[in-house]
Design a protein around this nucleic acid. Structure first.
Length: 280
DNA sequence: AAGATTTGACCAAT
DNA sequence: ATTGGTCAAATCTT
């Protein structure tokens, strides 16, 4: 790994830290402002919605960055293996083994390839179809099971499992554990409806409010960018759009965060191990 | 009508 | 017997 690559991932960590910092400040501001507005119910609702939108937007940015880093690492490793003619063969063997196990679909056979904790479990750049939900003993929230939407068209057998965590601060923050199983073998833009960056699953309902969205989180018109040599890459430029929106918000809150657009494009070629340790 | 989600049933693992 | 992952019919949405 060269110095440039190292600095690129370092930058992404800096951005994540800054956004986390913004979120913390937002929470503080939220706790200060809400009590002041106790007698102005109409404004209070609006302000609460604005806070919710800003918080949600920051969370999306972090999710994007985290997943981005992970996908880069996986893709880069794959490309390196292809160059070396080595581990890639092993990967194919694993996939074949998974396919052969098809007869036993009642038990999970795909290996866990990663997990993360996020506020936006449905916002990871892939399209998923829910195929089950289960109440888990001793857990407050049920667990949801999703398959890649490309299973029919391309036989992509990737799945993910989402479960909301029980911890909760002030009712405003909801955290979800997301586990990813099996590698994506699909090209994402083969799905008929690729306008949404989020999964087609309905968005997580907002707490203590109707589901109307303010202008800041209105429908994002996002389209995937496919690079033949980097299939399954997430949509770099669209993430940058999101990030720029969040940076604008950061400026509004008087936090000076700078992002070099070129850095994000360069991530596709970096070879560093996961610097964030988000995949456990 | 087609596609997506919900939900109870089924079944393997423990 | 219990748990949790998956199936598939029913239902909902577009």
């Amino acid at each position: 790994m060269n110095v440039l690559e190292s600095s690129i991932h370092g930058d992404s960590q800096v951005v994540i830290n800054e956004i986390e910092h913004q979120k913390a400040l937002l929470m503080e501001l939220h706790d200060i402002i809400l009590p002041i507005l106790y007698s102005h119910n109409d404004r209070k609702q609006l302000v609460q919605q604005l806070f919710q939108d800003m918080f949600s937007s920051s969370s999306k940015s972090i999710s994007c960055l985290q997943l981005r880093c992970n996908n880069d690492n996986k893709e880069v490793n794959l490309i390196r293996d292809q160059r070396n003619g080595g581990k890639h063969h092993m990967k194919n063997c694993i996939l074949e083994k998974e396919a052969k196990n098809n007869g036993n679909n009642r038990r999970k056979t795909a290996q866990l390839i990663g997990s993360l904790v996020t506020h936006e479990p449905h916002y990871d750049g892939y399209q998923w179809r829910k195929y089950g939900e289960k109440r888990i003993s001793k857990a407050k929230h049920s667990r949801s099971y999703y398959r890649c939407a490309n299973i029919k068209a391309q036989g992509c057998r990737a799945t993910k499992v989402v479960q909301e965590q029980e911890s909760d601060r002030s009712g405003m923050v909801r955290l979800f554990d997301v586990g990813y199983y099996g590698q994506h073998i699909c090209k994402k833009d083969d799905i008929s409806n690729t306008h949404g960056f989020e999964t087609s699953h309905e968005a997580i309902p907002r707490i203590g409010h109707n589901n109307q969205r303010s202008s800041s989180t209105l429908v994002h018109d996002i389209h995937g960018i496919e690079d033949n040599s980097f299939q399954n890459m997430v949509m770099v430029h669209d993430e940058v759009e999101y990030l720029m929106k969040d940076i604008e918000m950061g400026r509004a809150l008087d936090h000076d965060v700078t992002i070099n657009l070129q850095d994000f494009e360069l991530w596709e070629f970096s070879e560093q191990q996961n610097p964030l340790n988000i995949w456990t």
